[in-house]
Design a protein around this nucleic acid. Structure first.
Lengths: 254, 254
DNA sequence: TTTCAATGCGTAAATTTTACACAAAGAAAA
DNA sequence: TTTTCTTTGTGTAAAATTTACGCATTGAAA
């Protein structure tokens, strides 16, 4: 195993890594995908290194395909973390000891815990489509509600904070939802997504008016049935119009 | 010289570099600082490598202090360029030959023309305060009007494009001018800065109303004299209020 | 059959943004 | 000295956008 790792590193950039904040939306909450390091209770973001013949964007896609089972993931680079001690930092001494028990003392000093600059990406995925899959360092990969995210390894809490900020900034100037919602959804569901990301409530009549004014949604002749209330219409994004609006930019003026 | 370079590289990250688009404002135009490589007519952005005990931000500051003579420069990281061939690419074969004549054949293969990821920063500086200073690779450092920027080495034209986009985005959501204008300036001068950055004209009455509504400007009892017209008032930014507005964000709604 | 929570739909008020004109200053030209 | 020319300082009305808000209907659950 360690041998494989060394082989991999010979084909990869050593001083640069990347980490991804994968956002999903489920039951009215934003979730992020986290990995638990083998034999420890230390969690971190999915990430990895860039191969020598691979662009940073390709590497992020490759890594997330392995973690989620999806391909062509919506990815956005948002910040590069270049502090000196960002990778050396770890909150609890005991955790380092746990890691040393699992991976061997000194193992990380040469390979993981060196000075590394990390490129931060965030990804938007359809929650239900993801198959969370641990990597070689970890034995658990699962969703966490943004509100419940524990103290993470390295500077990964800061990464999530910045990723969320970048996502919010994006949501204020572009349509959002195509990558986070299933194909068909109701207007209240879309509204709840916006409310969750931007962190405040909207008037549902004004919300509907604004979203429809973007001319990116198509109302279907179907309704969502089963709930104890009036059945809401289903909508779907018209991809071409959505892409055009995203490229041109819209201002979410609420 | 080559010896010094190797010594430097032993104390620096080799697979990561950074490049800075330094914006200045002069005679109603945006300018960028460019360097001409020794013995060639190839131009590039100022940049360099990060020392092992130095953060990326510190490195950008150190490098720009050397190029401009300024300290505490306003710097904003905007994108990290991670394509495979970004550093190998060069537009003209003859230029590579020129470089090989000056620096020796094969010299760059091992040190400069390797796979490098580059962190992009833009800087905003007061044009008149800058002392353009070449570095070891270059024998000329000077301002270029944005419109006249030639075909640059590597992917540096793309970097300037992205930097400008990032600056525009910033200008739409934050006050701007403190770092680009001299201490005292007239309202028309400030307006011309906004028009130059955002690339379109504004009504001067509405512009003044909007900028004054930010409550970041103080009108002085002085006027700019000498021009063949009515003497305009001088203004200056009230630093504390400017900083507060920048942190909170304002929307430039014109 | 009744209840209850959520949906669908439209208008009026408030706020923000845009459009626009004329008198005064000051150097340059006559 | 006078005239010319360019640029500045200032306010209001119209248009557009954003916000606030109520009632009838649906459909499962009580």
């Amino acid at each position: 195993m360690e041998h494989n790792l060394k082989e991999f590193f010979d084909k990869a950039l050593k001083e640069v890594s990347l980490d991804c904040t994968v956002f999903g939306f489920h039951e009215g909450e934003l979730k992020v995908l986290l990995l638990r390091w083998k034999g420890t209770d230390g969690w971190s973001l999915p990430g990895g290194h860039i191969l020598l013949d691979e662009s940073a964007d390709d590497a992020a896609n490759r890594i997330l395909t392995q973690r989620t089972g999806l391909c062509d993931i919506y990815l956005q680079q948002f910040y590069t973390f270049g502090n000196v001690n960002r990778y050396v930092y770890h909150p609890e001494k005991e955790l380092l000891e746990q890691l040393e028990v699992t991976f061997g003392k000194g193992f990380f000093d040469g390979i993981i815990f060196r000075r590394v600059v990390s490129i931060g990406y965030y990804a938007l995925v359809e929650f239900a489509q993801v198959q969370p899959t641990p990597d070689w360092f970890t034995d658990e990969c699962r969703w966490w509600s943004l509100a419940d995210v524990p103290h993470l390894l390295f500077d990964h809490n800061e990464m999530i904070e910045r990723a969320l900020k970048a996502l919010r900034q994006h949501a204020r100037n572009h349509p959002i939802g195509y990558n986070l919602l299933p194909e068909k959804f109701t207007m209240p569901e879309l509204q709840r997504l916006y409310e969750t990301i931007l962190g405040r409530p909207f008037d549902r009549r004004n919300f509907q008016k604004l979203l429809m004014s973007y001319d990116i949604l198509e109302r279907l002749d179907e309704k969502r049935v089963g709930a104890a209330n009036k059945s809401p219409y289903l909508y779907r994004f018209v991809k071409e119009k959505y892409d055009k609006a995203k490229a041109a930019g819209v201002s979410f003026s609420m």
